[in-house]
Amino acid sequence: MSSADAIPQFNKPAGGNSEVGVTNMSALTAGPGIKSLFDFAIIALVAVVVIGGLELLLTVFAVPQYVLPKPHEIAVALVTDFPLIAPHLGHTLVELFSGFGIGALVGLVLAAVVTQFPFVEKIITPYILLLVTTPMLALVPLLILRFGFGYEPRIIAVALASGPMVMINATTGFRRVDSGKIALARSYGASTLQIFWKIRAPMALPMIFVGLMVGSIFGLLTAVGAEMVGGGFGLGNRLTSYSSMIQMPQFFAVVLILSILGILIYVLFFLLGKKFASWEA
């Protein structure tokens, strides 16, 4: 039994505090919410001040564009160069969706298997730990050597980066079940499969969403990193290419797109968590 609980929770930082935003379920249930017009006005005002201030500072100190372009230059680049950047965004999304889809699916299945057969866990835990602790980017040159400069090495890297995150969080979730609820199901003669689908799975759902969120963000990082290593397409490739050509407004436009992508992923899982795991106060 003690071995069954042995998988460390990587979503929890050792310190226990901090990083509430990404790693804690409270991020999903108590996340950002704009309450009133007044709140909104303040948020907008701060944004204007920050961006305007930046614009002003860069102008006053005459910071050269190759060091840091002004916000309006980035905005202009984003609009004018978007048609050029869009196909690369598409490539990155393909890698992210397929890699994360495969990784999450395998991770969820493994988590379920490990929950039901603690013995399997003993066998695979070392490999999972290895996958979690090794930056998957390190494998990309090797993968490129084997699979060429297409989608494959990137998708594999994304799957390897996101899968274990999903698995570890889902396993924690499946384990969290309190014995009273299992006893309840068993008192009505529930089978192991029924207990899994009707008790363990719904109880694990909040943790699964955390795993999917962390996993997909890891996937995005890995996809972009892999694109920077090699291959002539993808947002990561744009970053290396724009910076080598010192096209800094375009470079930052891509950075902005990546930030927005990350935020959209976060919001997506926030909303999913709100919809399907709101029972957890």
């Binding site: 009273g180 609820k181 006893a183 309840l184 199901a185 529930a190 009707k198 008790i199 029972w279």
Partner: peptide, 29 residues
Amino acid sequence: REIGMVFQDANLLPWRTIDANINFPFEIK
């Protein structure tokens, strides 16, 4: 099935409505 059980604290499934909680035993069976 001749034995009904009430557990310490209500032991309801928090993700289910009251009706769905009461239907739970029937679903299982």
